[in-house]
C-alpha cells in the first residue's frame, strides 16, 4: 500500500475476499473529534515514529511492519552480512510481542527459516485457498484429540 498515491476509491477493499483493508473515513490525527489522548505532544510519544501517519481518505492494511523488516535488512547490510535465518521473526510487532509463538513471521524464500517448515507442515492451510489468491498468511489447523482418552 502506497499511501501517498492513494485517492481512495475503495475499489481494492471491495475486491478483497478477506475484507482486511481499512479505510481512513475521517481525519483521525489532530482531530478533537477523535481524542485518544494522542493529540498533544506527550500523547504522541506512544506513536511509532517509523510509521507514517495516514491522512484522511486513504486505504490501508497490514504492511507486515515494512519498517521493521527494512530495519533488519539494513542492519545486516551495515554489518556486511546476510540476514540470518529466523531474524525476521522479531521484525513485525505482532510476532515479536506474541509470548506463545502463535504468530510467527519469517522469510519463506530462506530455506532455513522456521517459517518454511511451518508452511510445509501438514497442518498448514490458507483461508479461502480455493480462490487462488496465494496469500502470505498461513494458518494451522487446531490439534484435536479424536480418540477417547
Amino acid at each position: 500500500m502506497t499511501y501517498n498515491r492513494c485517492i481512495g476509491t475503495r475499489y481494492c477493499a471491495n475486491n478483497c475476499p478477506y475484507r482486511v483493508r481499512r479505510f481512513n473515513w475521517f481525519k483521525y490525527n489532530e482531530n478533537s473529534e477523535f481524542d485518544f489522548n494522542m493529540n498533544d505532544d506527550y500523547g504522541k510519544m506512544v506513536l511509532n515514529p517509523d510509521v507514517a501517519v495516514r491522512s484522511r481518505g486513504v486505504m490501508e492494511k497490514c504492511s507486515f511492519c515494512i519498517q521493521g523488516t527494512q530495519q533488519v535488512i539494513l542492519n545486516a547490510k551495515k554489518e556486511g552480512r546476510k540476514v540470518a535465518a529466523g531474524e525476521f521473526n522479531n521484525a513485525t510487532a505482532c510476532s515479536s510481542a506474541c509470548a506463545t509463538g502463535a504468530l510467527v513471521f519469517g522469510d519463506v524464500n530462506e530455506e532455513k527459516d522456521p517459517i518454511v517448515a511451518l508452511k510445509e507442515d501438514k497442518r498448514a492451510y490458507r483461508l479461502l485457498e480455493a480462490i487462488g489468491t496465494d496469500n502470505n498468511v498461513v494458518y494451522q489447523v487446531k490439534v484435536r484429540n479424536t480418540e477417547e482418552a
Partner: peptide
Amino acid sequence: GTGIGVWGLNKNIGW
C-alpha cells in the same frame, strides 16, 4: 469537508 465517513459505508461495503 469531513470525510467519506459521513456516508453509511463501512469496511465491508465500500461502495
